[in-house]
Design a binder for these strands. Structure first.
Lengths: 250, 250
DNA sequence: CGCCTGGTTGACTAATGTCAAATTGGGTGG
DNA sequence: CCACCCAATTTGACATTAGTCAACCAGGCG
């Protein structure tokens, strides 16, 4: 018998979204991720204006959205899929800054270069804007600027939680915190699946948590032995949430 | 013979600033930290309006500006001194989120609670605003909102650098990165002293770097043995910057 | 069927945390 | 000005944890 496991296709329904091209005027109005994205700040007139500036773009897994050394000329609003954001270090290591989910806005920079690279983990759909056009659109719209602020503050909050995670003592704590944080982010998207899908590889998790793949792997099996989680294809099921949270904070 | 070492008093001249009370209309115009702070976005009329909303507040070392569990009713623009920003963990550990310097803006939150606690390391001068009043002031001013955005993006950048630091392998690397990062932040304030003042305690540094005080101490002495730094009262002198940067990135 | 990638496991090593004691330095009061 | 005290820091010995290197296993695909 064949069990159906949740997949990223079901979680972020690529098939449910008709492949609309730029000439359809109602594209944004029906956008799956609108309520989650920056665009939620806009009225329908503004939305229509913004729509004309953007172009729906798709990326296959492993394809690059942009990379750290490039000139930062585009910004992206993710509508479907999961991306990994990372920096490569001089010594060859890779640090994963975070994972981007639908609704996330990518490409705001301090300088004229991106501050990290981004590439697709799952298939991705994103609205692409020229940075300049987007800035001009937003610059005199307080509602948009406030929304952008809100997004930055949320990102900052995530980043600080991650700092906390990285400075925590044990590998078990890091992994537990990671699972809980990931679950919470998915919950924000309106998904609270019984089984937590993990589309990223062990390597990504390791580089995100500041551990090695071996330690991540060992920790997962340890949590499994302790009956906190159970491994299913492409993810985990949280068996004992209370215990996971206890581990995360002790 | 008595050597004069740089002190926080010289770096952020408390004495140079007359103690002005709220009734002096020119307070903000002559603010030492204006160019660094959010207020730099404002014209003189707006500046005057904002001035009326704020109140200059002073804090002695160890005094608390606000704490994590409080209702977030105030925001602060730091004009002098150094503050430590931290979160206390359920298990009693303390995580230092960062150090705030003149120009930094504190108190933006996602929820109605502060997301960390803040207290003074050196004597502090800050402009205090009610969060509500400040929000009303800013909400329809695109220049102010853009400036706030810029600040958040910069904070985010700092936070991500810190994430990178925390996930780096060796204690030596962390300490070197910390020293360089601190030097760069002071340089932004227009100070590039030969001797790097460190007003915070070893404990603060340890909690910031995710190390123990013992390891921080050992690492400092190791760097000293390697002639990279030399300990002076209240700080360090960078003897070999190139080597420090090499350590930081390898 | 066998290769290739991703994941797991094991044995050993290196680094940091822990606990405890010694040392330094600044501030206070005589 | 000096002696003393307390807090901060440094140092040492040892334990614990994660990293390293290497082998093995499992699933997907040509």
């Amino acid at each position: 018998m064949r069990v159906k496991y949740p997949s990223w296709n079901s979680l972020m329904p690529q098939s449910a979204l008709p492949r609309l091209s730029g000439d359809c005027p109602r594209r944004c109005l029906h956008c799956w991720a609108r309520a989650l994205s920056l665009c939620a700040a806009l009225g329908s007139v503004e939305l229509h204006d913004l729509e004309k500036l953007g172009k729906e773009t798709r990326f296959a897994p492993k394809e690059s959205l942009f990379s750290e050394d490039e000139n930062a000329s585009k910004v992206y609003s993710l509508t479907q899929g999961v991306a990994r954001l990372y920096r490569l270090l001089p010594d060859g290591r890779r640090h994963i800054v975070g994972f981007a989910l639908p609704g996330d806005f990518l490409g705001t920079t301090l300088s004229d270069r991106y501050s990290f690279s981004a590439d697709a983990i799952t298939p991705i759909v994103a609205c692409r804007f020229s940075k300049e056009g987007f800035s001009r659109f937003a610059e005199d719209k307080p509602n948009m600027l406030r929304r952008m602020n809100e997004f930055e503050v949320r990102e900052l909050h995530l980043a600080r939680n991650q700092m906390l995670l990285l400075s925590s003592r044990s590998a078990e704590q890091k992994v537990a915190l990671f699972l809980i944080g990931w679950r919470d982010r998915l919950a924000r998207l309106g998904e609270e699946p019984k089984t937590l899908p993990l589309p990223m590889k062990r390597r990504d998790i390791a580089d995100f948590l500041g551990l090695t793949i071996e330690t991540v792997s060992r920790t997962f099996t340890q949590l499994e032995r302790e009956k906190v989680i159970i491994n299913v294809p492409k993810g985990f099921r949280l068996l004992n949430l209370a215990r996971a949270e206890a581990l995360a904070w002790t």
